[in-house]
Design a protein around this nucleic acid. Sequence first.
DNA 1: CACCGATGGTTCGGTGAACGAACTGTGTGC
DNA 2: GCACACAGTTCGTTCACCGAACCATCGGTG
Lengths: 171, 171
Amino acid sequence: MALPREYPGQSCAMARALEIVGERWTLLILRDAFFGVRRFSDFSRHLGVPRAVLTERLEFLVAEGVFDRVRGPRGRDEYVVTDKGMGLWPVLRALGAWGDAHYSPAGPRRTFRHEGCGGAVAPGGRCAGCGAQVPVGATVLVPGPGYEGPAEGDAISAALAEPHRLLEALP
Amino acid sequence: MALPREYPGQSCAMARALEIVGERWTLLILRDAFFGVRRFSDFSRHLGVPRAVLTERLEFLVAEGVFDRVRGPRGRDEYVVTDKGMGLWPVLRALGAWGDAHYSPAGPRRTFRHEGCGGAVAPGGRCAGCGAQVPVGATVLVPGPGYEGPAEGDAISAALAEPHRLLEALP
DNA sequence: CACCGATGGTTCGGTGAACGAACTGTGTGC
DNA sequence: GCACACAGTTCGTTCACCGAACCATCGGTG
């Protein structure tokens, strides 16, 4: 049988992309990585994904060149987004924009601003202030009006609630 | 236990969106719908998805307001994308752009053009010809240099190979 | 009218993935 | 040496996906 991640017979770029990032948890792992999460246990704690699944997903994403596994300080492995992985930011941004538009009556839970200029970054990546196309690394994540506060006793979601640049490692 | 489609504890717009469209097959069903597929048997034949799964997905997407179920000609049910569903086009477009960039060495398999103007539509939705933001319904799907031809004996993929407007019912 | 094929499903047994809890190994810091 | 955090692995259970077969309805055709 075809592997469950495959979509046999679909010679389509969207299907091909979904074979890489379409499995359960994968896009949320990637979202956390954009938000600055890098370590196995931080992904695990913040997402609540079974550890075996997390191992398998990280392994696969490294093999596909979406993540790099690097030795961080104190001998800990860190998973960082590659250039290829950064190409997936528009996908996550579009998903978030749709989710906010239809399931956040109080307004967006997170907003994105152009570092320096400070203008709001539209889902397409354009800055409403200066009109520039903002690269992922120059985007600052700021809680929006619909933000509901961090989960109880979760250091990761508390750190995510502070404004910070995308892809920058959390403290 | 939490329903399998859920991501418990994630108060995030992306997670919320993935609870709607993150299950296996859902985004491919939606892609086909944008390309003009509307009937149960056409989805089934073209995607090869198990019929029980297709039933469940269509039902759920109708309940969530992504599809409308309407009585088509000759008493057949048709599933058409709602305004809310159209909001997901940027997600699919971004996925396809990433898939093309990294897994289509011969160039994109499909391209998108601005109806009338004829300019290429960028993943963000802007027309390279006239600079306008192109609505989904004014986008024309055209096979690109990486297109590999329709699957053998598949009337649906043959119809998809002809240039046509998005969301317009196939012949 | 009886028949027939297409449509739009439902049912059902088998299989593989996800789940969660427990366990293991490995590298620091004290 | 010892404790602890980190980064997994193992394992039994549960659940969704799979594919094949079955069923009801509708529209035409003889």
